[in-house]
Design a protein around this nucleic acid. Structure first.
Lengths: 167, 167
DNA sequence: TTATAATTGAGAACCATTATTATTTAGTTG
DNA sequence: CAACTAAATAATAATGGTTCTCAATTATAA
């Protein structure tokens, strides 16, 4: 099967300065508190696919008094307003990523090492839309998570000839 | 977008008699216990997309001494050996269905009432395979869950003209 | 039949997440 | 700027699905 070429994603350079971050909170219709700014900073400047706990730890480094309930609460609001998207894999803790800096994408996760590849595929998106429509549904969201073994782990497993092996 | 026609699924008639059920447990490399037979019976004869708790209740009706730990334990083993497949939606309890009586399919869930439609689409399957391959992954499984508002709930919401309304 | 390793039931433990509540604070109004 | 009020917070308890522990029981192999 031939994959349709997806155009190169141009990653715009965002400046997440204090002002911009404050504006996000205001746009959400919430009060601008230091806690929310701290949390947002960590989300925007930290790495993607972070768990609530990881975020809490990152936030703790900046403000040891900031409680984890605040992190969860704000994270939920961000999710509801679709500023961040929530990815749940199996029964594992949810992972979050800032949803507005890149176009929509899905995930390909290695079952062994947990490494994540992102991809986007318009054909699949269109098919999903068509399927929902055929059932009379209004499609609001979807979860597409592919699981597999990454090239690195294939080597380690001896599925492919490789050098590394677990003892 | 045009949907490719998927051929009608011919549902073979399975006879889940005692003997067949016992054989499943043996095939799994497990001891044949009355508890496992009872649980399997409930899974095979009950309805699809059942939660562990619902299954526990069904099982309780047949054997009030059967503990929920046993249900969870066996359910996990069934999942690992892919006799049942586990569907997790958001943070909701996992739902299970017997995986070997029908061909693979995905789910379209109503966010409001939780009703589930099943669908299968070979084009999407193929695309997934192709994507994994393009990253060098061996695809082992996937989760595709579409979320939307079903026609019934659209009416209730007043999105579509309808008769029913919440007070 | 006996041995033994697997299985079970009961309940405790776990862990991510949510709710509660008394206290503090942001943003508004005078 | 000061006072007010609704929103937000920290701490902690509660929740709920799922997994673990362990002593007692049981299926299977010998």
């Amino acid at each position: 099967m031939e994959l349709a070429k997806t155009p190169e994603i141009k990653e715009p350079v965002y400046r997440w300065d204090e002002k911009a971050i404050k504006q996000i909170v205001r746009d959400m219709g919430l009060k601008v508190t230091q806690q929310r700014l701290t949390i947002l900073e960590c989300i925007l400047r930290g790495r993607d696919h972070i768990t609530a706990q990881e975020l809490y730890e990152a936030v703790q480094a900046k403000d040891p008094n900031l409680g984890f309930a605040t992190v969860y609460r704000f994270l939920k609001q961000l999710t509801e307003q679709e500023y961040v998207s929530e990815v749940r894999m199996g029964g594992l803790p949810a992972r979050y990523e800032w949803a507005r800096k890149k176009s929509h994408h899905d995930h390909l996760t290695c079952k062994q090492c947990g490494s994540i590849c992102e991809f986007e595929n318009q054909q699949i998106e269109d098919l999903q839309e068509a399927i929902a429509k055929s059932f009379g549904y209004i499609l609001t969201s979807h979860v597409l998570e592919l699981y597999g073994i990454c090239p690195e782990c294939q080597k380690e497993d001896g599925i492919l000839p490789g050098t590394k092996n677990f003892s």
